[in-house]
């Protein structure tokens, strides 16, 4: 039963990733694109954790943690660059 649930959740998050990709290519502005990339990072974290569950190792949590951190920092850096034209002043 858990195997089917993991497969279902993986399909859901994979489809969500495709939706995000569509939005990255068809964005109405640069902030929209940043938002789609941020959502992509969140979906990828979910996919990594799901894969770790299906394999049964805890190694992928480290990768998920790294993804969460770099995703946050990159989104803030993008927004800061849009706002100020510079990242570290």
């Amino acid at each position: 039963m858990i195997t089917f649930a993991i497969a279902f959740a993986s399909i859901c998050f994979g489809l969500g990733l495709l939706f995000n990709l569509w939005r990255v290519f068809n964005a109405s502005g640069v902030t929209d694109r940043v938002l789609a990339l941020d959502t992509m990072v969140i979906n990828i974290i979910a996919l990594l954790v799901l894969y770790g569950m299906s394999v049964g190792t805890g190694v992928y949590f480290e990768a998920a943690l790294l993804f969460a951190m770099t995703g946050f920092v990159s989104t803030v850096a993008y927004c800061k660059f849009i706002l100020r034209g510079d990242i570290i002043e």
Partner: peptide, 10 residues
């Protein structure tokens, strides 16, 4: 969780 995720991306 899967339903929430796909609703958010949709």
């Amino acid at each position: 969780a899967g339903i929430f995720g796909i609703v958010g991306s949709f």
